[in-house]
Computed example of a mutant assay.
Amino acid sequence: MSKKYVLQAQTRELQGKGASRRLRHTGMVPAVIYGAGGEAQSISLRHNEMIRNLQEEAFYSQIITVDFGDRKEQVILRDLQRHPAKPIIMHADLQRISDDQEIRVHVALHFLNEEASKGVKEQGGAVNHSMSEVEVSCLPKNLPEFIEVDMINVEKGQILHLSDLKLPDGVSLPQLALGEDHDNAIAAIH
């Protein structure tokens, strides 16, 4: 299944531009936790730990445990600000989650059997991806790490849409609830 992500955190009292700058010089990242009926809380995270986790695709869409030492909170990464020229994380926004409330998260699409598909192997086509991720709505326990798109039976000239995705149990696509006009293409073979 998916990897469990844990971030060590400390609460922080000092806020503002200067305090955040001083915090970054000590190897920490200023962040905020909000949502799920709780108060917004300013925290600091270890920069090296964040950089290491951000190298994994699943970190952006999976549940993260923030460990304060005496308590733990379940969150998802909502926003991330990076320095425009240096490999430095400037700030992170984390949203608390509740086990009984649906969340909306962007999940990566993994395309399988592209080179072995009918449209490529037999008909000489090329695969064109229109989307690399989709927004899903589900309870935290049903959150997929990624969604697989099997291209084996796709022929040249055929287009796969959002409605063609095989979603895990308890997972839905909010965009499809908006009507047929929002059933966007995800991939095609031309």
Rank of each mutant, 00 (worst) to 15 (best):
K4W: 07
Q10P: 10
R12L: 03
E13R: 13
E13K: 11
A19R: 05
R21L: 15
H25A: 13
T26D: 09
M28G: 01
M28R: 15
V29P: 01
P30M: 04
I33G: 02
I33C: 03
A36W: 03
G37M: 06
G38Q: 15
A40P: 14
A40C: 09
S42H: 12
L45H: 06
H47A: 10
H47S: 08
N48K: 10
I51E: 05
L54Q: 04
L54H: 08
Y60W: 09
Y60R: 11
S61L: 02
Q62S: 13
T65A: 08
D67I: 02
F68H: 02
I76D: 02
Q81S: 10
H83E: 08
H83V: 08
P87S: 05
I89E: 05
I89R: 06
H91P: 00
A92H: 02
A92E: 08
Q95P: 02
S98K: 04
D99W: 08
D99S: 12
Q101T: 09
E102Y: 09
E102S: 07
I103F: 03
R104T: 14
A108Q: 15
A108F: 11
L109V: 05
H110L: 10
F111E: 00
N113K: 04
E114M: 14
E114I: 15
G119Y: 02
K121L: 08
K121N: 09
Q123E: 15
G124F: 01
G124R: 05
G125D: 04
G125H: 07
V127R: 00
H129P: 07
S130L: 14
M131K: 14
M131C: 07
S132Y: 13
E135V: 11
V136H: 06
L139S: 02
L139D: 03
L143S: 02
P144E: 06
P144V: 05
E145S: 00
F146V: 01
I147R: 00
E148Q: 13
E148I: 11
Q158T: 07
H161T: 09
L162S: 03
D169Y: 10
G170Q: 00
P174C: 08
P174E: 06
G179P: 00
E180T: 14
N184H: 15
I186F: 09
A188P: 06
A188L: 14
A188F: 12
I189M: 04
I189G: 00
H190P: 15
H190T: 12
